[in-house]
Design a protein around this nucleic acid. Structure first.
Lengths: 194, 194
DNA sequence: CGTCTATTTGAATGTACTCAAAAGCGGTGG
DNA sequence: CCACCGCTTTTGAGTACATTCAAATAGACG
């Protein structure tokens, strides 16, 4: 049950058996059905989540009432409403399963304790946020220099096969374009392939 | 000379006098004139930079040959070509002074040593990257849901007064719009003000 | 099977871009 | 200290990429 997360952590730090046991004792396992909501606006993000199977979407509504998908959270990824989790203010984002999803959650207080008891976790999350920083910088660059068509290609490339499990509507909401326009892009693709 | 950076670090961790001295002994002070290049593509980012006065821009050229400003680095901010700094591969980004700029640089090897000798720095940079993660998530959201006009307003709001020291061309390159279009936005603003 | 939502398609529209040219401004040399 | 050069900013006209709204079709789920 903890194999996936221990392997994920093992990429950056090495834990002793005791440390692994202490860490996993703080994790709570949960299963969500398709469309189940893990976190929603108004509630405080008490946990950060690690997906062991399935996929979540992190999104919110913009001022025009459009669903704006911030990121998908597939297997082996960590996420939460980061602002809410850090400040313990009410969330503004939804975290929702787009298919049956299994995850492990870790509470803010347990994480803070973990930083103190096993400082290697400072390193682990330093590297994790550092990588997010890098990935988001790339995303910002892409979004401002690529056309919708090119963004779609990058998306397919990056999420390797995940695009087959996500609805077009959600992909459009992630790319920041209308579902209608994404439909036109895909039609064009099909024509060019044949 | 080290006041600004020690205060910056003191926001998140507390160092003893010895730790402060060890840390500052690793810093190298440099002054750049307007338009001087701090880092350029092809060279490896051996350092991460902390600006104590002035302002840098971090940018690169996209596939269409347009200058794409990733971020401005004003006083009290850290930055570098993060990918190059972490992997020690050649940089793809330019780091350049947009006005006379004073900075402190810290080498990759000294930083790695620092993580080992004073693990509190893991915490410090964990928090720093965590905050970048948060800020970049906001930026991605803004970029996909706001019009160019609204993005400009957010920019002015966020960089409080810095927009007066930056050319319109650079602001446009940061916002991902043409300088011509930014000019039209500002004209519209002036009309509405009067 | 029926309902509800997602996807496709069409036509009109809007936001931002391209290219071109004029005006403004800053830095440098005489 | 002024004049000139080069770069930035402004303005105009035409265009492209992506949206809006509407309606038809397809597909998912109970």
């Amino acid at each position: 049950m903890f194999d996936v997360i221990l392997k994920n952590i093992g990429k950056h730090i090495t834990l002793s058996k005791e440390e692994e046991d202490y860490f996993t004792s703080k994790l709570v396992y949960e299963v969500y059905k398709k469309r189940d909501v893990v976190l929603e606006p108004g509630k405080v993000a008490l946990y950060t989540y690690f997906v062991t199977d399935g996929c979540l979407k992190l999104y919110e509504y913009d001022n025009n009432g459009f669903e704006n998908i911030i990121t998908f959270v597939p297997k082996d990824w960590w996420n939460s409403d980061l602002y809410s989790f850090l400040t313990q203010q009410p969330a503004t984002q939804y975290l929702q399963a787009i298919e049956k999803t299994e995850l492990l959650k870790l509470s803010k207080t347990d994480l803070e304790d973990l930083y103190v008891k096993i400082p290697k976790f400072e390193r682990f999350f330093r590297i994790l946020h550092q990588n997010s920083h890098l990935a988001l910088t790339n995303l910002v660059r892409n979004n401002s220099s690529l056309t919708a068509e090119e963004k779609y290609d990058k998306f397919v490339e990056r999420y390797q096969g995940l695009e087959l499990r996500i609805t077009q509507k959600d992909i459009a909401a992630y790319l920041g374009i209308t579902p209608e326009f994404l439909s036109r892009i895909k039609r064009k693709r099909k024509k060019m392939d044949s």
